[in-house]
Simulated scan of single mutants.
Amino acid sequence: MTTVMHGNQLLGEMPYYLAPKGVWSVSRLPPLTRTLGSVIKPIGADPVREFRHRMHVTTRLIEQLPRFDSFFQVFDHRVKDALAFALRGFTVSARYTFHIGPDCTAPEVWVPMSSKTRNVVRNAATTLTVRPVEAPGEFRRFYEANLASRSRTNAYGTVVMRELVNAFVDRRAGHLLGAYYRGGRLAGVIGLVWDCDIFSLRARRGLLAERSAF
């Protein structure tokens, strides 16, 4: 963790994860971590001064990073400090995902959706029914079987996956949904986990298990 202080006041901090690979010093995202990045305390100034403050603090955080042969982080979409990294020689690129507000209704999501996506949804609705997956074990078995059919292993590990799914279900911090054929066979599953945002673990027949965030 790098930090920037002003007297006894914490101005900003940035966690990083060391994951050595052989002789190489590598920093990547820790397991089960969607995003990292800098956290800067606002100073309550006008936009120009606030921007300059963030740039200054972020630059000081970057300067404290150890020397890495490879450094990779994904920032939350609300983190706007990528410019400071670009100016320090890092390669910066954009990733895209869906962000749907918790107060957004189904019709509000449907209206701006492309006609092609709507047709896919309509066609799927003729053969599939979406309902809760009652047992976490059913979700895990489908997820693991989907990977095994393609000679892949669980990136999280079977034990960690079991503990993770059981934990967010028991704490009501997540929800498991399945798309079922009319005969009751699973066609796809998704695990939605939330804090301020919703993140997902999903798997579908015919495709690799995927990870994404909403």
Rank of each mutant, 00 (worst) to 15 (best):
Y143K: 02
L61K: 02
R152M: 15
S70G: 03
E144Q: 08
P107W: 03
V133G: 03
V74L: 09
P107C: 04
F139C: 00
A84M: 11
T153H: 07
L128M: 14
P136T: 04
V130C: 05
V79W: 03
V109G: 09
W110V: 12
G101F: 08
S115W: 13
G157T: 05
Y96K: 12
Y96H: 14
F75I: 09
V130G: 00
F90G: 02
V160I: 07
V130P: 02
H77M: 15
L128R: 10
G89L: 04
F72T: 06
F75L: 15
V111E: 15
F68M: 09
D76L: 06
A106I: 15
G157W: 00
R78P: 01
D76G: 09
F72V: 09
R141H: 06
S149A: 13
V79M: 15
T127I: 11
A135Q: 00
A106F: 13
V109C: 13
S151P: 02
F68N: 03
Q73P: 00
R140K: 08
M161F: 06
Y96M: 11
A84R: 09
A125I: 14
F75S: 12
A124K: 09
T129E: 12
Q73T: 05
V109E: 05
V120P: 08
C104K: 09
L87I: 10
V159Q: 11
F75A: 11
A124I: 04
R95E: 02
N146D: 03
R67H: 07
T127K: 12
Y156D: 12
A86P: 13
I62E: 09
R88L: 05
N154K: 02
